[in-house]
Nucleic acid binder design. Structure first.
Length: 263
DNA sequence: TAGGCCATCTGGTCCT
DNA sequence: AGGACCAGATGGCCTA
């Protein structure tokens, strides 16, 4: 190979590298845009690429299910759907965004047969039937025992089927990645109101909850459902990192969807 | 220190 | 020939 030819090849390679970089940058900015429209968005605690895609898929699926059924969704099932196949830290993050804390589960667990009979509630908490086998190995082997316990022991990953029927995507099966006819949903605006009053248990209802959050921010991820927080009955308002927010500035479509649940 | 995530480089393949 | 796309390899950074 002549010197000139080698030089040309080198230049070509450099140009190809530059193009590839740009291509990946475009891909990353598209992913960033996606991060902004999934239920949970945090600038400092960014979802990984794979988790973003999984959450987006779950989100679409959940939204579609709501549209399809035309019913107010069960909050627990909704969160479970969003968190299907996500890692434990991401699950905590998403659940935290939705302001669903352990208290909900603890309270409901005390209800008859695990079912809550609130006035406005379609909240149906089934006996704990969490099955680790339904999740991928990495999810079942969370490095954080505290968080694992916090979520698992409270049915966070209880069977989806009991609530949505047997139509849930199964991350363990090869079919999961097959094209699904996604059922629908709303974003992180969907929240369960927390009320510390004695009537708290009687007054569960879905509500808009656009609270400004305090800046007491634990470090690292896995901050939302620590077992200590659960034991002490920490309110959800105190659980969100300052930089995390639900998307209350979104298009009217979201407001409509939320209004739908508000009725 | 191991594992996860990421950016980048690189060579291969396909298409225009 | 050149561009787009893809997947493997590699090294850096961060966290448990």
């Amino acid at each position: 190979m002549t010197k000139a030819r080698m030089e040309r090849s080198k230049v070509r390679r450099q140009k190809a590298n530059a193009r590839e970089r740009n291509r990946m940058h475009d891909l990353n900015s598209a992913l960033d845009n996606l991060r902004k429209v999934v239920p949970c968005y945090s600038k400092t605690q960014k979802l990984s690429k794979i988790e973003t895609l999984r959450l987006a898929k779950n989100y679409i699926w959940a939204l579609s299910e709501i549209l399809r059924s035309g019913k107010r969704p069960d909050l627990v099932a909704y969160v479970q759907t969003l968190c299907k196949g996500l890692s434990q830290p991401t699950t905590n993050l998403v659940a935290g965004c939705l302001q669903l804390n352990s208290r909900n589960f603890l309270t409901e667990q005390g209800q008859e047969a695990g079912r809550y009979h609130g006035p406005n509630s379609s909240f149906a908490m089934h006996p704990y039937t969490y099955q680790c086998s339904r999740l991928s190995g990495s999810q079942c082997q969370s490095s954080s025992m505290a968080n694992t316990h916090a979520l698992r022991s409270h049915g966070y990953c209880a069977t989806y089927e009991s609530l949505y029927g047997n139509t849930s995507p199964d991350y363990n099966s090869s079919e999961y990645d097959a094209p699904l006819s996604p059922p629908l949903c709303i974003n992180g605006n969907f929240a369960l109101k927390q009320d510390s009053s004695p009537d708290h248990d009687k007054n569960y209802h879905y509500s808009m909850h656009y609270s400004a959050l305090p800046s007491s921010r634990p470090s690292g991820h896995s901050l939302l459902f620590g077992s200590s927080g659960m034991r002490s009955g920490v309110h959800s308002e105190n659980l969100l990192p300052y930089d995390m927010h639900v998307h209350h500035d979104r298009a009217p479509m979201y407001e409509e969807l939320n209004a739908f649940f508000h009725n």
